[in-house]
Design a protein around this nucleic acid. Structure first.
Lengths: 221, 221
DNA sequence: TAAGTCCTATACTCGCGAGTAAACAGCTGT
DNA sequence: ACAGCTGTTTACTCGCGAGTATAGGACTTA
């Protein structure tokens, strides 16, 4: 309060670390906690992971973690939020990209599937609603809706340009994303298939369907 | 040991309950615990459900539950096992039914999707691996494999008779069942769509694909 | 040197929920 | 009347993990 408004100077160099640097440190430590926590959550599950686990694996003690996060729920929220942020950015990029609706949806789903394999994206797929506090849950649901909206827009664009044909956009979105979300439940990095292979294969199946082209669907029966 | 071999009599009526009846009581109480437990698990999640919750809602106390089950893990195991049993029976019935591979797969997936909406089936979809003890998990995995094998057989039959065309049977199974498993995560009985509507819609999408028939897949690009 | 602040550790509290010990009621068969 | 079995209760133990009180070290600013 005693110092006046900041002023433009000839040089910004100074032997003293800038407060901005202090912030950076704090942010990077927060980040480290998040990265380690999401590993544990994905591996052992949220409930089976104690903050003690996370702390020890970072060579600190539990209160240090509480210096960066108010409580365990906030950590889980931050992980899921981060995952949804990554997904939303990928979805927006795919929507802006060129091509018809189907091509853009293809790109979107591939990115989505790859993100489900590990990290924050997998945390989105693996975190059940009841693991989050009611407040966090409602915020997460809002973020999920954002992604859904983008996906639906792309599908609707594809229906208009004739490249996509589905009966119900909402339900189709749930089914397609559900299939990809499930990857987070079984993908094993040590397995024979790479993230990319799984993503391409799954998405091809969702787009092309199971039926041979001549058979359409079992109607009339 | 004192009484000899049982003898055919003119009547079986008797004022005393048969030992068989006692067994029935025990079995039906075990069943009641399971039915109530799976409701809680599906609603609040396994970890958030205490056996106290289950006991109180059945108008008994916690030790009574331990009179029928050794521990909480055994209850969860029994729920998931039951769900997988239901699924396996439906899958076998669909496999035995008439029609080509695609028609049988269609019937199988419809049944599967409906089961994911509630009860023991939903518990299968909602229970993550790490909620089970290692021993229970390996038994559950074996049961899941049984179902997978049936599904794959039907898909392979469909490929041979030309009604189904997919690149990788194993991965296709995971993707299709994953899409349906996901129903257990979002289905709301109070919502606008019935179990049947959701099942039929989801399965139609998996079989027919998202792409309009003329568009196949975005290849060449 | 002294006050202030940021970060981290030691050493707790506290509640919850899984699981148990032990007693007791009721019914069965001797 | 009594021994025994089944099912149930009351009244616990016990450990774990979330979260906290508090102190101390390091570095900053005056």
């Amino acid at each position: 309060m005693t110092t006046g408004a900041t002023v433009k100077r000839a040089t910004e160099v100074s032997p003293w670390p800038k407060p901005e640097q202090r912030q950076r440190d704090r942010a990077s430590k927060r980040e480290a906690v998040l990265l380690r926590a999401v590993e544990f959550f994905n591996e052992k599950g949220f409930h089976a992971t104690s903050l003690e686990d996370v702390a020890v694996s970072l060579h600190v003690t539990k209160p240090t973690i509480y210096h960066y996060f108010a409580n365990k729920d906030e950590i889980l929220f931050a992980c899921v939020q981060r995952g949804l942020e990554e997904i939303r950015q990928a979805a927006e990029a795919a929507e802006q990209a060129g091509g018809n609706g189907l091509q853009r949806l293809h790109a979107l789903l591939i990115d989505y599937a790859m993100m489900m394999s590990d990290g924050f994206g997998a945390c989105v797929g693996r975190t059940p609603d009841h693991a989050l506090s009611p407040e966090s849950l409602s915020r997460i649901k809002a973020l999920k809706r954002d992604t859904d909206v983008i996906v639906r827009r792309v599908i609707e664009a594809g229906m208009e340009d004739g490249s996509i044909a589905v009966a119900d956009v909402r339900l189709t979105t749930f089914t397609a994303l559900g299939a990809l979300n499930w990857i987070s439940r079984w993908y094993d990095p040590a397995g024979p298939l790479s993230k990319r292979e799984i993503a391409e294969h799954s998405v091809d199946m969702l787009i092309g369907g199971l039926a041979a082209r001549s058979h359409k669907v079992a109607e009339g029966e």
